[in-house]
């Protein structure tokens, strides 16, 4: 059984959450995932349409006030062990929107992020690098090498 799991590397599925982004990172994610030029399926990853099938979640956008609860709800629906990737500078730090009245980010205030891919937007190769890093963390978590999320950092929502 051990030999089997050594040979068969499992394939994470990707899911994308738009937390109020300007489309830049989303378009680049679509480009990375869907077209043969970048072909993220080479890495064993595949885009899926439902959060319940997802293993790696890519979040874009600065997390606006209006979308916050919905993002958190969708994120919670993703089964453990999940790996969260923040794509673009907005989810990481707020980017150029920092200080806006409806910006609730950076996203790691609410969600434990594992990998950051800064850029505005990052080029597809850079996103792939982030996915590779996330895949490694995900496999380590599956094999029990890396710890999962330390604690669930949710705010109590009204």
């Amino acid at each position: 059984m051990n030999l089997f799991s050594d040979i068969v590397v499992r394939s994470p599925w990707l899911y994308r959450i738009n937390a109020g982004s300007c489309n830049g990172c989303d378009v680049e994610l679509a480009t990375t995932a869907c077209i043969p030029r970048y072909d993220v399926e080479r890495l064993g990853c595949r885009y899926c349409g439902s959060p319940r099938h997802a293993d790696i979640v890519l979040i874009t956008g600065p997390l606006t006030l209006r979308v916050r609860d919905k993002v958190l709800r969708v994120w919670q629906e993703i089964p453990e062990p999940k790996v969260t990737v923040a794509v673009g500078i907005c989810p990481i730090s707020g980017g150029v929107f920092r200080g806006g009245h409806s910006i609730e980010g950076p996203i790691d205030r609410y969600i434990p992020v594992d990998v950051n891919v800064p850029g505005c937007p990052p080029r597809p190769q850079s996103i792939m690098e982030g996915v590779l890093l996330a895949k490694k963390i995900w496999l380590d978590r599956l094999n029990g090498i890396a710890p999962g999320h330390k604690e669930e950092r949710h705010v109590s929502l009204p």
Partner: peptide, 19 residues
């Protein structure tokens, strides 16, 4: 609507012309 409201018109009055 309103999910992508980032308050940009208000932000623009906090930033200078170049920003």
């Amino acid at each position: 609507s309103g999910h992508v409201h980032r308050g940009m018109e208000a932000l623009a009055t906090k930033r200078n012309l170049f920003q």
